[in-house]
Design a binder for these strands. Structure first.
Lengths: 181, 181
DNA sequence: GTCTATACGCCGATAGAC
DNA sequence: GTCTATCGGCGTATAGAC
């Protein structure tokens, strides 16, 4: 029945960082939820920052898998649609959705985190794969907005009116339609 | 030449909160940039939270102006386009753009701030004005996405490639096209 | 209006026993 | 692997002189 402690720390930290923000979450809170003292955390992670690193690595790996796939493809309309679908599909794995949300909500707090730079770089390269080199600004921007639409759930203050599933489904539809503009 | 000190505190706090995040910005930093001690700040604002309140008030007032206008209009396609245009136009006033960005980037850190609840409520009502009552989920979501396309600058990791103006112009174009989907 | 001085607590992190 | 104890530092905030 005993779960790996390291994994439980990640799980609790991920939830609290997302709900309250990275800076607002102390190691004491994480330890308390886990039922240990904060000193115990230091056996599993060198620093608070290290917990973040372990989480971001998950997301970077996912983005790089996507990037690798994109590069192996011809850049046509069907490839772009499939890329958006695959990007959206990553969010159907709960842990990946949680990590993505954590990163969404802590961009500013983590702005100096080296792994975040890696992630942004991957996003830039991914959105570049959406267009032929030298594509006009509006095309680049519209295609990038397709990715953005999939993150918009955070901003859509419609909770209570529609389920998460409805919002996600409609977001994907909008993202795909954006590719056709 | 002497500017009002209260206004200068707001200006510096707004910039630092946006760049570094609310939690990561201390009153000491603000005071240092202003060239006074942090104790001096307490003459102008009761608490750190009070500085935020004074900033959020600006945004809430803008949203409510927009909401009032929306309510006085018939809900047709041209009204929706005009509403999006007016929403976008608010961001052309530098101070309002700065405040909006500050709020975008500190949603999580300020999640318990009472003024933030007011702002979210105003956004919900504003996006409700975009549709007839009882409109289907996809319509509501797509029209709401139109607003949020205008916030996409944060996510578009295209800085350096395109100017802020290009991104804003294209975002508005996409927002307007979303209304027609 | 701004200062110095200070209260008081929580933070991340470490040392060393068990 | 987890504990107790503790460190140094910085956080917000206040008191009271000027």
């Amino acid at each position: 029945m005993r779960e790996d402690t390291r994994a439980r720390i990640q799980e609790i930290a991920l939830r609290l960082f997302t709900e309250q923000g990275y800076e607002a979450t102390s190691l004491r809170e994480i330890a308390e939820e886990l039922g240990v003292t904060k000193a115990a955390l230091y056996y599993h992670f060198k620093t608070k920052d290290d917990i973040v690193t372990s989480l971001v690595d998950l997301r970077v790996a996912e983005l790089e898998k996507l990037l690798e796939w994109a590069r192996s493809q011809e850049k046509n309309a069907e490839m772009r649609r499939e890329l958006v679908r695959r990007y959206a599909e990553q969010f159907t794995t709960p842990r990946y959705l949680q990590v993505a949300r954590f990163l969404e909500r802590n961009q500013t707090a983590l702005r100096n985190h080296p792994k975040l730079a890696k992630m942004r770089e991957a996003m830039i390269r991914l959105s570049a794969e959406m267009c032929a080199p030298g594509a006009p600004a509006t095309e680049r921007i519209i295609h990038s907005l397709a990715f953005f639409a999939l993150h918009a759930g955070k901003w859509l203050t419609l909770e209570g009116e529609f389920s998460d599933e409805e919002i996600e489904k409609a977001s994907l539809e909008v993202a795909l339609r954006l590719l056709e503009l």
